[in-house]
Amino acid sequence: MATLIIAEHDNQRVAPETLKTINAAMAISPSVSVVVAGANCRSVAVEISKVAAVEQVLLADDAVYEAQLAENISALVAEIADQYTHVLAPATTFGKNLMPRIAALLDVAQLSDVIQIESDDTVIRPIYAGNALARVKSNDPIKVMTVRCAAFEPAPVGEAGAKVTELDIVIPCDLSQFISKQAVESERPELAAARVVVSGGRGLGDKESFALVEKLADKLGGAIGASRAAVDAGFVSNDLQVGQTGKVVAPELYIAVGISGAIQHLAGMKDSKVIVAINSDPDAPIFQIADYGLVGDLFELLPELIESL
């Protein structure tokens, strides 16, 4: 078994999801190779070389890979993939965008959003917004998969320095051009990695009231999330959406404020360790999965809760 991980990074630091993917891959083989494609990203390769399970880092450092577009990175990975039995990436927007393109170039299927690796060819993945779990066996010579990061811990970083090998494959990207990125700046912890997540929904009524969710999150040192209704109403930016089509989180504590608990939202948070729901509607479906439910007016309860912490 030889496993290749595609590193997600911003050309400076490795994304924590990469470390979780490496750990997930431990179920297949004890050591992995990691490919780092980007521009001026040697520091990322060095950082990854310190992860205990990493045997080799393949560095494709060229201006053509700067925006990490799927068009040329998929071609780069497809060129080296025949030496591997498994190719993995995190199921983030980066991995979701890139991996099916790699799979198709290799003429193999893909296993998406894997939550458990049972053996080298069999995995478990959620379907129907997490309302069913499918055990799937792949018959392909190369297994391409994306890994649900909320289901895995990060791989430990050690002292050992794996070998960094330069790849001299340069594939220009002439059909697709990166124009700009509008990043959402936040002092709070990353939503997908936070220990505590406080999420707000339609029940907050307006953008100003969402500040209550932010205050509570800050008191608990947590991240903020939102339901689709809150995002669509413009309370917060859409990268904070938790659910089937947004982010999947599994923090130690998830506090849902003014969120009814639609199937699509539950898909993104029902593996949280402790779920608290605060809602004025005692019949809201969120109460069926909440460990602690509090019925009442959130405009009275939230300030009281913030005050008492």
Partner: peptide, 14 residues
Amino acid sequence: VREVDGGLETLKLT
């Protein structure tokens, strides 16, 4: 304009 983790990204495609 693409919805990506951390914000939005704009690409121009042929």
